[in-house]
Amino acid sequence: MEVRTIKVFTTVDNINLHTQVVDMSMTYGQQFGPTYLDGADVTKIKPHNSHEGKTFYVLPNDDTLRVEAFEYYHTTDPSFLGRYMSALNHTKKWKYPQVNGLTSIKWADNNCYLATALLTLQQIELKFNPPALQDAYYRARAGEAANFCALILAYCNKTVGELGDVRETMSYLFQHANLDSCKRVLNVVCKTCGQQQTTLKGVEAVMYMGTLSYEQFKKGVQIPCTCGKQATKYLVQQESPFVMMSAPPAQYELKHGTFTCASEYTGNYQCGHYKHITSKETLYCIDGALLTKSSEYKGPITDVFYKENSYTTTIK
């Protein structure tokens, strides 16, 4: 009895394709271990004539594949690729409408935090270190965002349907971005203890939790000093293409032309909904596939993004 075979390709990165001759009487799992086709788990399936010449994702289970996976995804987590594939199996079914010149995501599976993050990423200057993220990001900007969303979920250790947080998501993504040249110098002034300067680099240099107003941050924000008295913390120097200011959701007025974009969060910790506000020729609110415009805006804002380049204080 002759062994019926077909020729397929296996890959971990969709760049390096490895030619395989597979036995049609055995499952993919018996031949390769966990195997995925377009995100779908085909591990328990036997090869079919229609699979001839198709590319299958496999887990990096030998040295060659491990090197290829690390170079593309910059992670050695053995569960990463499987999590990416199972997320992709959902995100490829989502709709990605162009809204006001940006790629958004039609609401499904509690994905409003991903839509808000995706919209924000198209408006701030950011370059990702893992080629996987950078490639998928370019495709997302062009309207094909399924891979990018699935990668975000995998890097953030999230599953489809789980509630997510924009600030946490951005923080994970910033860790995989090139923020080497970003720098922030802060000064804390206390009447009792004097003053202390701190220099922050990388992710810490672009994120701040405690106030939404970048102007206020430049002037000074009140913080408790270690001595128990009130101290003032203010920005001395900022070198970065953008800054992200966050605070627990509270009524906040966004003035046209003073910011790049913002995240609105309605609801409580267990259950809520994100919308995205962007400042173009007027203010726009993007909620999944829905767009509304207004000249002014007041609502429960939790993150505001500002364009920056270089700032030095005039406070002496």
Rank of each mutant, 00 (worst) to 15 (best):
T211I: 08
A115N: 07
D287V: 00
N14F: 07
T91P: 04
S86I: 14
D77C: 12
Y57C: 09
S294R: 11
S181M: 15
S79E: 09
G194S: 02
T76E: 09
T282W: 08
N100E: 14
A145R: 02
K293G: 09
D38Y: 09
D13K: 05
D135I: 08
L59V: 15
I223R: 04
D287S: 02
K54V: 11
T278V: 13
Q122W: 03
G53E: 13
V189Q: 08
D165Y: 04
T116L: 06
R167L: 03
T103P: 03
Q216H: 12
S171A: 13
N129K: 12
G272W: 00
L290C: 14
E296N: 10
V8K: 04
S25D: 14
T120I: 14
V160L: 05
E308R: 06
Q134R: 13
C182V: 05
I15D: 06
P249S: 01
P97K: 11
T199A: 08
T55C: 10
A247S: 08
Y269T: 15
V203C: 10
C225D: 02
D62V: 07
K158D: 05
C112A: 03
A250V: 10
Q31C: 12
T76V: 14
G82I: 13
L133A: 02
S171N: 15
F305G: 00
Q270E: 12
T278A: 10
V12Y: 07
K280M: 12
H48M: 12
K54G: 12
N147M: 10
A115S: 09
I6A: 09
K201F: 12
Q30R: 11
L163N: 05
T11K: 06
G39L: 08
T27E: 14
Y36S: 05
L65R: 09
F80C: 04
G299K: 01
P131K: 08
Q230F: 15
V12G: 07
A177P: 01
I105G: 05
Q122H: 03
P241E: 07
K201L: 12
T76W: 11
C149R: 02
N111Y: 03
L283V: 14
I301K: 00
V236F: 06
Y172D: 08
L254A: 01
M244Q: 00
T19A: 12
A108P: 03
I152S: 02
T10W: 09
T198G: 03
L151V: 03
C227M: 00
K219W: 03
T292I: 08
N110F: 04
A136W: 07
L81E: 07
L88P: 05
T11M: 06
T260N: 07
K127N: 11
Y72I: 06
S86C: 15
D13Y: 03
T226H: 14
F217G: 03
T199S: 09
T27D: 14
S50A: 13
L254Q: 00
T55W: 07
E215P: 03
E239S: 10
T192L: 09
K106W: 04
M207L: 07
L212Y: 01
Y297G: 02
V8G: 05
E71S: 08
A40E: 15
K183H: 09
D13G: 06
L290K: 14
R141Q: 09
L121K: 04
S79H: 12
V243K: 00
K316S: 15
A146S: 13
M26R: 11
A177Y: 01
I105P: 01
G164Q: 03
D38H: 11
G202D: 03
N147L: 05
G220A: 06
C261V: 01
T91M: 02
E168A: 11
H256S: 11
A140T: 10
H276L: 09
Q270K: 11
K298E: 13
I124R: 04
K93S: 11
A87L: 07
Y306V: 01
G194E: 00
M209R: 15
V166F: 12
A262T: 00
S279E: 01
I15T: 12
K229S: 15
F56E: 02
G53H: 12
S310D: 15
T64K: 12
L179K: 08
H18D: 07
K106L: 11
L17H: 12
V42T: 09
L81K: 05
Q30A: 13
K293C: 14
S294V: 15
F56N: 03
F174K: 01
Y73H: 04
E204N: 09
N309Y: 10
D41V: 09
V185Q: 05
A247H: 07
G228K: 04
P78C: 10
N89C: 13
T5Q: 13
Q270V: 09
Y57L: 09
T35M: 13
K92T: 10
T313C: 15
A262E: 00
D38G: 09
S246H: 01
F9M: 13
E144G: 07
Y113S: 05
E296L: 12
T27Q: 14
E308M: 12
A154E: 03
T292Y: 10
D62N: 15
K127E: 12
Q222L: 12
H256M: 12
D180G: 10
Y252N: 04
L254G: 00
Y138G: 14
G53T: 10
V203I: 11
V99R: 10
L153A: 03
P97W: 08
H276R: 00
P34L: 11
M207S: 06
L173Q: 02
N157M: 06
Y284G: 06
G210V: 00
Y57H: 12
V160Y: 01
A146D: 08
Q20P: 07
G299L: 00
Q31V: 15
V12F: 06
M85C: 07
S25P: 06
A40H: 12
F128L: 06
D62I: 06
G267Y: 09
D38A: 10
K54P: 05
C182K: 03
T55H: 10
G257M: 07
T43I: 06
C285K: 10
E308G: 07
R4D: 13
G210R: 02
G228H: 01
Q216P: 00
T55K: 10
Y297K: 03
Y113H: 06
K93N: 14
Y155C: 02
L235F: 01
N49C: 14
Y113L: 01
R83S: 08
K229D: 15
L126W: 02
S263F: 01
G29L: 08
E281M: 01
Y137C: 07
K293Q: 15
G53Q: 12
K127Q: 15
V3H: 15
A69V: 08
Y137H: 07
N49F: 13
H48Q: 15
T55G: 06
K158V: 02
A154L: 02
Q230T: 14
I6Y: 09
H48A: 14
C190R: 04
L254C: 00
K92S: 10
T76I: 14
T159P: 06
S240R: 00
T27M: 13
R4N: 14
L283Y: 02
V203P: 15
V236K: 06
M245N: 03
D77I: 03
A177R: 02
R83E: 03
F80N: 04
C112V: 02
A250E: 12
M244F: 02
D13W: 02
L153S: 03
G210D: 00
C227Y: 01
K54H: 13
S79C: 11
Y73E: 03
T27N: 15
K95S: 14
E162M: 07
W107A: 05
F174S: 02
A289K: 09
T10R: 10
K7S: 13
L254M: 05
A154Y: 00
Q222S: 13
N14K: 10
L153D: 04
A150V: 02
K233V: 12
C225Q: 01
Y57I: 10
